[in-house]
Design a protein around this nucleic acid. Structure first.
Lengths: 204, 204
DNA sequence: ACCATATCGATATTATGTTATCGATATGGG
DNA sequence: CCCATATCGATAACATAATATCGATATGGT
């Protein structure tokens, strides 16, 4: 398998492009059009599209819309659905579990774990288990992606258990920086970080 | 007022530093210590700290912990509380509204708006108003920061109304890129973008 | 009192990401 | 049939951020 690689920034722009491409109804799409839709630089978009597209763009026409959609979906892994679990089924965990949009992104949340749960419960059609059953269940389901929505005090310990159970990627909503070995990828969705930028802006 | 400016990356690291500094009990803290706590580069941390600190660090000792805490809080605007509103009180909006942690970050959510609400309702001690009362209420309260948790279809229209009402910063959880004039700052907390990085990683 | 060293600030280097430029090419209009 | 032009790919210039290096300095240990 030829392993192309993409910058984080590019990867983060792809979902926007995909969204637009799915709406557009023309056979071809130009970098110019995409760029102006999102207020981005034309060259940047062209580089992004060229880097994911298997077939070259054509002068004066642009890229073939359908092929491009397929290529982006492929890079993002949509279509091949990943199964994930949520640890910490409080307000935020519930909100995420209920968020139906994830299936559009190739993500299916198949189970939840919560320390307050003593016996298996159900949230809509998703089972919630006690935390102490986490490791065996994740192992059995071969879960590779986990979402952490527990509080800061418990997040690191949960994270360690997830890694022990074989999880490869972690999406962390707890307000702290998780420490993991280099082969595990962690994405921190720390609200304090986002707020820092906005808050500092208002201070001026 | 001397208007120092900080890179977004630095601003996003500051909350982590702050968290650590508050826990530490020594009179001084070195960049080295902070860096090793978070697995960051020592020089990077030193540059960050030097850029926010009003007084210089001392060789062999580091920075004065308390002064540093104060300086970071100042840059982040904690202490001076900002009032914010939430538009879209669904699962996610409720989760955010209930999240008590924001007060630690100088953010107080004072009202919500939702299109399904016809007459004023209460969520704990926060009032929820119909969307059509949004503009006058935001004007009256002089709200500068708004959180958008409506669906993608309505987000741009909500955003336009917020700007019209005088909002200066927007924290957007809807999965699309909002178009605003340059003087408004938007932070997109697009789940699809975060997921893109993780998902691509698992594909390899 | 002096030396070893932790830490600092400053500067230089490297890496990454964005924007500008330019020649090539294919399409549509005169 | 040819020219004007939209778009491409490639390369170059620029911007920003991360890391490495180095001399200066103050502290603690001998």
């Amino acid at each position: 398998m030829e392993s192309r690689s993409f910058s984080i920034q590019t990867l983060q722009r792809l979902p926007y492009y995909l969204d637009y491409l799915r709406k557009v109804e023309t056979e071809n799409v130009s970098s110019t059009a995409v760029a102006s839709e999102f207020g981005l630089n034309e060259v940047q978009v062209r580089k992004d599209l060229a880097s994911v597209s298997l077939q070259a763009g054509q002068p004066r026409k642009g890229f073939a819309t359908l092929a491009l959609i397929r290529d982006i979906e492929d890079v993002l892994g949509y279509g091949h659905v990943d199964e994930a679990v949520i640890v910490g089924v409080g307000h935020l965990g519930t909100a995420l579990a209920n968020y139906s949009g994830f299936e559009n992104y190739g993500l299916k949340i198949v189970a939840g774990f919560d320390k307050r749960v003593k016996h298996e419960e159900w949230l809509n059609d998703m089972p919630i288990f006690p935390v102490d059953r986490m490791i065996p269940i994740i192992r059995r389901l071969k879960i590779r992606l986990a979402i952490i929505t527990v509080d800061a005090a418990n997040a690191q310990s949960v994270c360690d258990q997830l890694v022990e159970a074989g999880t490869e990627a972690i999406w962390n909503f707890a307000p702290l920086k998780l420490r993991v070995s280099d082969d595990i990828i962690v994405h921190n969705e720390n609200m304090a970080c986002s707020l820092a930028v906005l808050s500092n802006h208002l201070r001026k």
